[in-house]
Simulated assay, not measured.
Amino acid sequence: MSVTSETGQGDVPLAKIRVLIADDHVAVREGLAAMIGRQADTMVVGEAANGREAVDLWQKHRPDVTLLDLRMPVLDGVSAISEIHHQDASARIIILTTFDSDSEIAGAIKAGAKGYLLKDAPREELFDCIRKVHAGETCIPPSLVAKLAAGMSSEALTSRELDVLTLLARGKSNKEIGGNLYISETTVKSHLRSVFTKLNVVSRTEAIAVATRRGLILL
């Protein structure tokens, strides 16, 4: 870690946490850079507009902590984490995103992210997360941990159940779903009952909403 010539109380040098920011929105990058730059113990060493730039800048600067958006052009956040971790498994990366489905959280953590925050998190929570991850801790808000746990505890849907759910989300009736999949309406209803149980929902609308939020289907 680099040490600046700045001094704090008692003329003790302050060790700055070197941060890389990766987000495809200019306003977000500039806002984060301004906030982080104003902190006594953090500094920005690079700003990337996509996942590929993030990996390249990480290689160049070897930052202490990287703030990474989840969905970016050229290379998404999870792929960028994977590439960085292939070079250094100890790289400290925080996902900062607007997306909070359990599948996205799980994917980022599995890839190697040490933190996961939403972009509307209070700035003090962001600074605290940067410091915790820099110190070797994991930083995920309790609400996201609960969502992740709920998703992991849910029984996985079978491929046929996903087929039924996808057609359901497209507005198909039970009869139409059966026709598309060459199964009877009774079998469709059986699959739907299983889907409702696994997703812990009671209606078709709720099933579609939960499945979409978890990234099981794309509308």
Rank of each mutant, 00 (worst) to 15 (best):
K60L: 14
G51L: 00
G51N: 02
T98E: 10
H86E: 15
H85P: 02
V55S: 00
A91L: 02
D69M: 09
A80Q: 09
L68C: 11
G77A: 12
P73E: 00
L96W: 11
G77Y: 02
S103M: 04
P63K: 08
D69L: 08
A80F: 10
A54S: 08
V74F: 08
F99G: 02
H86Q: 15
L70P: 00
R92A: 11
H86L: 13
G51F: 00
L75G: 04
R92L: 03
R62Y: 10
I94Y: 05
D64K: 02
I81G: 03
H85E: 14
A89D: 14
I84Y: 06
E83M: 14
G77M: 07
L67S: 07
A91D: 07
G51M: 01
R62H: 13
T66D: 04
I95L: 11
E104R: 03
H61F: 13
V78Q: 08
P63N: 11
S82T: 15
I84E: 09
R52E: 14
R92H: 10
L75H: 05
V78C: 08
I95P: 03
I93C: 03
P73G: 01
P73H: 01
H86G: 14
L96V: 13
L96A: 09
H86Y: 14
A89E: 14
L70S: 05
Q87H: 15
D76Y: 10
T66A: 13
E53N: 06
S103W: 01
D64Y: 01
W58Q: 04
E83A: 15
D69I: 06
S101H: 06
G51D: 05
S90P: 02
S82I: 11
A54D: 01
D56T: 12
D102P: 01
V65N: 06
L96N: 10
V65L: 07
D100F: 08
S90H: 02
M72V: 04
I94V: 13
H86T: 15
E104S: 11
H86V: 08
F99C: 07
V78P: 04
S103T: 10
R71M: 14
R92M: 03
D56Y: 11
M72L: 09
R52N: 11
H61S: 12
S82M: 12
E83K: 15
A54Y: 03
V65Y: 03
Q59S: 13
Q87V: 09
E53R: 04
E53I: 00
A80M: 13
R71I: 13
I81L: 13
I95F: 12
Q87T: 11
S82L: 10
G51V: 00
L67Q: 05
G51A: 05
V55Q: 02
L67D: 05
T98F: 10
V78H: 09
D76C: 09
F99K: 07
P73I: 00
V74N: 09
V65F: 11
V65A: 06
D88Y: 09
L75Q: 13
G51Q: 01
H85Y: 15
R71Y: 13
T98N: 07
M72I: 04
Q59N: 13
A91R: 03
H61T: 14
G51R: 00
T98C: 08
S82V: 13
T66G: 05
D100K: 08
A89G: 10
F99T: 09
I94R: 05
A80T: 07
R62K: 15
Q59D: 12
R92S: 12
A91K: 04
L68W: 12
H85C: 15
S101W: 03
S101I: 01
A80E: 07
L96F: 15
I81Q: 03
H61K: 09
